[in-house]
Amino acid sequence: MGANEVIIDVQESATVGDFKAVLFSQYPRLKALTSLFIAVNHAYAEDDEKLTAEAEIALIPPVAGG
């Protein structure tokens, strides 16, 4: 993505799945990752989770701690 933070426009009451669809259409290169999880407020989120205006959303590419 080439940035630490980007703006993605989604409808009110959008879910994580809706967010991902818009994200992938704007940044198709993300599909090349072996995995990409979405975190909402510092926790992994499922596709059906609803987003709120205050939520902190993060993209989590393959992790490699240790």
Partner: peptide, 23 residues
């Protein structure tokens, strides 16, 4: 755990990608 590491070689660099099975 969301921690990432990049390997730096003499001729380049590469993000280490772990198993995609978090979910």
């Amino acid at each position: 755990v969301p921690i990432w590491k990049k390997e730096i070689f003499e001729d380049g660099e590469e993000w280490v990608s772990a198993q995609p099975n978090v979910a």
